[in-house]
Structures are given as structure tokens and as C-alpha cells.
């Protein structure tokens, strides 16, 4: 009977030298990680707000306050964002929610990896589970915030169109972009504390060069920056699907989606290959 036992071999060589085995183990680990991912997801969800009074209301509070802030600044003419297709509060709220979805996708996986350090260095388990659990967390956060959007849409009487059905693709694309970057950043961010700090700064700057609280500018340097920003086509297109507006950036949207998918696979491989080295260096 013992001859049927699976044999695992550990050697110093890069797993890339044997791609068939690598892809096989990637698929196997993804399958093996489902139950663990679910458990980690439930754990994080249950623990996240258990020691707070407001609980999940915290997820709503942040976008509400942010939206009110921008609406106030715009109404007082402190900032001037020009005309938007839909009432400005609905425009800002939609933008903020989508942006938050992207920012979460970039930050949550890295945070959860940091939190799992102890487990990573001591226990052998499929590391895909952490990424899957993060994805669950990101989706739940987004869906809870979605409640806000529904309320605001009804309040401002924004018409529901059939293009709404395409919006989930846009949302998933934003999340895929965020998680792809997180996967690629994992090795450096686990080794150097600088990455987390830089990332915080980068995300707050990135927010302003993305048309979240303003429509895409028509010309000048701002137009150039928003155009090379990969988040722009995803966010703009998704918002247009949500509000039933005319699509302006479908071409760039598709390009970003395809590149994201390819780089996600690459990111996954990097994540797997890096993990033993990371465990070695952050060890104990």
C-alpha cells in the first residue's frame, strides 16, 4: 500500500526548470486551499469588527464621510470639477466605492500576509489560501458598501439600465488589477517594511491622479497622467456601466484587462516561487 503514497522531492533547483510540475502543483494547491481559504475568510470576517461598537457600519462610514467632504468642497466652490453626467454626490460616491474596491484589493492581501507571518514560518499549508481569503474579504467589503450606492441611486432617481449587468465585470477587473499588483509586490513587501509605507503614500497620491472625484480632464498634463494611469479606463468604464452613461474608454479597458490577466498568472508564479525564500528570511 505504501508504494502508492505520493512522494515529494525538495531540491535546490528553481521550480521553473520543470514547468509542467509547477503548473500541476499550482492547480493542486489551489484546489487543496479551498476549505482553508473559506475558514480563514470566515475567521477574518468574524474577528474584523467583533471588538468594535459600530461593527460593519465602519465600512459605510468612510465612503460617506469622504463623499460628504467632496460634495461640500465642490458646493463651496473650493474645488471646481466641472459638469458631470449625473448629480455630483452620486458621481463622487460611485467613484469612491470603485476606487476603494481597487485600493482594498491592493492592500488587503499584503496586510493578511503580514498577519499570517507566524503561520507561514511554522506550518506547511497551501499559500493560495491567503489570497483566496483576501479576495473574499475584498468582495464582502465591496458588497456592503454597495448598499450605500443603491440608496443614493434611488435618492437621485438615477435610471437603471441594462448596462448595469456589465458592471460586475468592471468591478472584478478593478479587483484583479489590485490583486495582481499585490502578488507582484509580495516578495519585496514581506522583506522590506518600506514597501508598505511607500504603498500607503502611493495610494493616496494615486487617488488624485485617477478620475474618482472629477471627470477625466480633456487636455493638459492632467489628461496625459490620467490616460497612462491603468485604473482610469477601468474605473471610468465601470462607472459608466453603473450609471448608464455613454462608454468613452472601452478600448483601453480591454487592453488593461488582458494585460492584467497575463500579469496575474505571472504574479501567482512569482508568489509561489518567492514564498520559501521569504519564509527563510523572515523566519523563526
Amino acid at each position: 500500500m505504501n508504494h502508492n503514497l505520493p512522494e515529494i522531492i525538495y531540491t535546490p533547483e528553481s521550480q521553473l526548470l520543470c514547468p509542467r510540475k509547477l503548473f500541476g502543483s499550482m492547480a493542486a494547491d489551489l484546489r487543496a486551499s479551498r476549505f482553508l481559504a473559506w475558514r480563514l475568510f470566515v475567521r477574518n470576517l468574524a474577528a474584523q469588527y467583533r471588538q468594535t461598537l459600530l461593527g460593519y457600519a465602519w465600512l459605510l462610514l468612510v465612503p460617506v464621510v469622504q463623499t460628504l467632504l467632496w460634495v461640500f468642497l465642490n458646493a463651496q466652490k473650493v474645488i471646481n470639477v466641472g459638469a458631470t453626467d449625473i448629480p455630483y454626490p452620486a458621481f463622487v460616491l460611485t467613484g469612491t466605492l470603485l476606487w476603494q474596491g481597487f485600493a482594498d484589493s491592493l492592500q488587503v492581501p499584503l496586510q493578511q500576509l503580514q498577519a499570517a507571518k507566524q503561520m507561514l514560518t511554522k506550518i506547511h499549508f497551501p499559500h493560495e489560501a491567503i489570497m483566496l481569503a483576501s479576495l473574499g474579504q475584498i468582495l464582502v467589503n465591496f458588497c456592503i458598501r454597495l448598499v450605500l450606492m443603491v440608496v443614493v441611486f434611488i435618492w437621485f432617481g438615477i435610471p437603471l439600465t441594462s448596462s448595469l449587468l456589465l458592471a460586475p465585470f468592471g468591478i472584478l477587473a478593478l479587483m484583479a488589477l489590485g490583486m495582481m499588483l499585490a502578488l507582484l509586490l509580495t516578495p519585496l513587501s514581506m522583506l522590506y517594511g518600506d514597501v508598505q509605507r511607500l504603498l500607503l503614500m502611493a495610494i493616496s497620491l494615486w487617488f488624485f491622479v485617477t478620475p474618482v472625484i472629477y471627470p477625466p480632464p480633456a487636455g493638459g498634463l492632467a489628461a496625459l497622467i490620467t490616460r497612462i494611469n491603468p485604473v482610469t479606463p477601468l474605473l471610468v468604464t465601470t462607472r459608466q456601466w453603473l450609471t448608464g452613461a455613454e462608454l468613452t474608454q472601452l478600448g483601453p479597458f480591454l487592453v488593461v484587462v488582458i494585460v492584467t490577466l497575463i500579469l496575474s498568472l505571472f504574479g501567482w508564479i512569482v508568489y509561489r516561487l518567492a514564498m520559501p525564500h521569504l519564509i527563510e528570511r523572515i523566519g523563526s
Binding site: 505504501n2 503514497l5 505520493p6 512522494e7 515529494i8 522531492i9 525538495y10 531540491t11 535546490p12 507566524q118 503561520m119 507561514l120 514560518t121 511554522k122 506550518i123 506547511h124 520559501p276 525564500h277 519564509i279 527563510e280 523566519g283
Partner: peptide, 22 residues
């Protein structure tokens, strides 16, 4: 336990590994 890779040599493991480490 397969947490880190050897720098030299070869390790072959058959069967389910359980660890009472942490």
C-alpha cells in the same frame, strides 16, 4: 516540512506530513 528549500542535496518525503511545531 517543505517550508524552506535546501541549498544543496535532496529530500524525498513519502506520505502525509504532520507537524507538532506550532
Amino acid at each position: 516540512n517543505g517550508l524552506i528549500k535546501p541549498d544543496k542535496g535532496r529530500i524525498a518525503i513519502r506520505g502525509r506530513v504532520g507537524a507538532l511545531i506550532e
